[in-house]
């Protein structure tokens, strides 16, 4: 029982870290450019497909990983220059619709090229196998590795935003767009870089999660909606909020699915406990979101609604 609990805790943590890779890009793009991007899930899918295809070609997961970063960043740059750039001055409705249109284009395009069947990614040899957790359960090394990789990326992102010149510009862009343009910073290029950065993070998350699950059209959409919940909880535009929100949502979702049916089985029979428990668990993070909004309408770390 203890080892199962520990295993679920790690799973929750892993899903939280992966969510952060998605949510940080979304929240950056919103914070700096004021843009709501529904197509962020498509960039996640692009990353996963690029990783699967390149890994299958070359036999190397690592090259696939590099490909996922590059493909997602490239797709991000293209989309930003062709479409997104025209949307910064538009209202949110136009942004929602245009990025919804991008989802249709990405999803159908991918289905056209790769078909509807999922692709599978193999865990690299180096990280295959399992470790024994305290309590005796086996846990895949790969999952531990992606937790570590995700945390590393998160730390890198905080350093980038907090300590580098680019990060200063990004923070300045969040605070006052006109002013940094007046200071002679090429704002168009800054926006493209921020968008590409967010896209690369989403693509990386896609490659990681694609390896533990499967790579298929539409895989980005559930994650996108979870990432929305995360940034609503954390406060839109706040990277710190995205981190706290991701971990909170990852844990609540995973532990809810694990614990609720167990808790209910003490009051009803096993089969209805499973069905009621899993139905309730699927709603849990939204209830959490509603609670947070009720107490703090602009999220935990949000500046203003």
């Amino acid at each position: 029982m203890f080892s199962l609990f520990l295993e679920q805790m790690l799973n929750g943590f892993q899903s939280g870290v992966m969510l952060f890779l998605m949510a940080s890009g979304l929240t950056l793009v919103f914070g700096v450019m004021g843009l709501i991007n529904l197509a962020h899930g498509s960039l996640y899918m692009v990353g996963a497909f690029a990783c699967a295809v390149v890994a299958a070609w070359t036999g190397s997961f690592w090259l696939g990983l590099v490909a996922s970063l590059m493909a997602a960043a490239l797709a991000g740059v293209l989309v930003e220059i062709l479409v997104i750039r025209r949307l910064y001055r538009r209202d949110h409705l136009d942004q929602v619709l245009a990025t919804f249109a991008l989802i249709l284009i990405f999803s159908e395009g991918t289905r056209w090229i790769f078909g509807s069947f999922p692709l599978f990614l193999n865990v690299p040899d180096l990280l295959a196998g399992t470790v024994i957790l305290p309590g005796g359960a086996q846990y895949p090394i790969f999952r531990l590795a992606i937790i570590a990789a995700g945390l590393l990326v998160a730390a890198g992102l905080f350093l980038l935003i907090g300590k580098t010149r680019l990060g200063t510009r990004i923070r300045a862009g969040e605070a006052d767009r006109e002013m940094i343009a007046a200071l002679g910073i090429n704002i168009d290029r800054l926006y493209t870089v921020v968008f590409a950065l967010g896209a690369a993070l989403a693509g990386l998350a896609g490659a990681f999660v694609g390896t533990t699950q499967s790579v298929q059209v539409g895989m980005g959409e559930p994650v996108l909606i979870l990432a929305f919940v995360v940034i609503v909880i954390g406060g839109i535009g706040s990277i710190k909020g995205a981190l706290i929100g991701s971990i909170l949502v990852g844990f609540t979702d995973t532990m809810g699915r694990f614990l609720l049916p167990l808790a209910l089985s003490t009051v009803t029979d096993a089969s209805s406990a499973t069905s009621i428990g899993s139905a309730l668990a699927s709603m849990l993070i939204y209830i959490l979101m509603a609670l947070v909004l009720f107490l703090r309408p602009s999220g935990l770390f949000g500046a203003k609604a």
Binding site: I36, H92, I225, I231, I236, M289, L293, P297, S298, A305
Partner: peptide, 13 residues
């Protein structure tokens, strides 16, 4: 209770 982009995301959620 919210507006703008929060409203969009929360109705979706």
């Amino acid at each position: 209770r919210t507006s703008g982009v929060y409203f969009i995301m929360i109705t979706l959620a």
